[in-house]
Amino acid sequence: MSQSIKHLHERFQKLFPAMDADNPSPADEAGTDSREEAEPLEAEAPAAVPQLRCRRTEHAKAGYDLDLAVEPQQVLEAAGVLDEGGFAIDMITGIDWPDDNQFELIYDFLHFQGPARVVVRTRVPRDRPEIASLSAIFPGANWHERETAEFYGIQFTGHPNPIHLLLPDDFQGFPLRKDFKPEPDPS
């Protein structure tokens, strides 16, 4: 399986040439990831603006094998590649970073043949949280996106059924945002 992770790694590097944060030009063909190949996991500085990257991580340390950070509009493409590669949708995680005024979205994929988990992460601005829905590729993303949408207020464009899943239909607010204040108990 590590073979195919390597293959996937190379493919993603071609697809999304790695870029520096201050020079986010997708046309940069020369960009090969300088930190590639089994680089030990460094604790990711959470407050930093995420760098677009594609790197291998040690499963025993992070819990996944390939870490891919892309632009929001590239998520669909990455998911398409993973779908071709026979990956399954695992989960979608939203994280609120109020200091950066951003939401982080982490899409996890797993492969049924062996220890291969791929993480695709992206960030959307907090004041205009919009991202394309994966439901067309992975119908299982439907529920995960509904959940993330109701908890964070992120809009998944093209979602077939954007209604609340776990919260009541008339619930106001987004409980997993850090600035969420629950309504005081009427009693």
Partner: peptide
């Protein structure tokens, strides 16, 4: 917990259960 993001999965009776923790 040192800052960072970590996943851990176990095989629960009904399938894969996974925890992702994000620490600052």
């Amino acid at each position: 917990v040192p800052a960072g993001e970590y996943c851990y999965a176990t095989e629960a009776a009904r399938g894969r259960f996974e925890v992702r923790i994000v620490s600052t």
